[in-house]
Computed example of a mutant assay.
Amino acid sequence: MESTGVRTERPTDGVLLITLDRPRKRNAIDGAMSRAVAAALDDLDADPTLAVGVLTGAGGTFCSGMDLRAFLDGDAPEVPGRGFGGLTQAPPAKPLIAAVEGFALAGGCELVLACDLVVASSEAVFGLPEVGIGLIAGSGGLLRLPHRVPRAVATELALTGDRFSAVDAHGWGLVNRLVDPGSAVSAATELAERIARNAPLALAATKRMLAAADLPVDEAWARQEAELVAIKATGDAQEGARAFAEKRAPRWSGR
Results as ranks from 00 to 15, higher is better:
residue 178 L to A: 03
residue 170 H to E: 04
residue 61 T to K: 00
residue 6 V to W: 01
residue 180 D to P: 04
residue 91 P to K: 01
residue 71 F to A: 14
residue 145 L to Y: 09
residue 77 P to N: 01
residue 173 G to M: 04
residue 97 I to S: 06
residue 251 R to V: 15
residue 144 R to I: 03
residue 89 Q to W: 05
residue 46 A to N: 09
residue 100 V to H: 01
residue 101 E to Y: 07
residue 148 R to S: 06
residue 40 A to L: 05
residue 229 V to E: 15
residue 153 V to E: 12
residue 218 D to Q: 12
residue 182 G to Q: 09
residue 223 R to A: 12
residue 119 V to D: 02
residue 216 P to F: 10
residue 241 A to N: 03
residue 228 L to H: 15
residue 25 K to M: 15
residue 43 D to V: 11
residue 180 D to H: 13
residue 126 F to D: 02
residue 104 A to D: 10
residue 30 D to W: 06
residue 118 V to Y: 01
residue 58 A to P: 11
residue 173 G to E: 07
residue 85 G to H: 03
residue 44 L to V: 11
residue 1 M to K: 01
residue 103 F to Q: 08
residue 28 A to Y: 08
residue 230 A to K: 09
residue 115 C to P: 02
residue 32 A to D: 14
residue 191 L to C: 00
residue 111 L to D: 03
residue 4 T to H: 05
residue 184 A to F: 10
residue 176 N to P: 01
residue 246 E to R: 11
residue 246 E to W: 09
residue 75 D to V: 09
residue 191 L to D: 04
residue 196 A to G: 03
residue 169 A to S: 08
residue 6 V to S: 00
residue 241 A to I: 10
residue 147 H to G: 04
residue 72 L to I: 14
residue 47 D to K: 05
residue 104 A to Q: 08
residue 166 A to D: 09
residue 52 V to S: 04
residue 202 A to H: 13
residue 20 L to C: 09
residue 128 L to S: 10
residue 131 V to K: 06
residue 41 L to I: 11
residue 72 L to P: 06
residue 30 D to I: 04
residue 149 V to Y: 00
residue 45 D to I: 08
residue 95 P to K: 00
residue 119 V to K: 01
residue 159 L to H: 12
residue 97 I to C: 07
residue 58 A to K: 04
residue 177 R to N: 00
residue 75 D to I: 10
residue 194 R to D: 14
residue 237 A to T: 11
residue 89 Q to K: 08
residue 29 I to W: 04
residue 15 V to N: 01
residue 231 I to K: 00
residue 222 A to L: 13
residue 158 A to F: 10
residue 177 R to P: 02
residue 145 L to W: 13
residue 51 A to H: 14
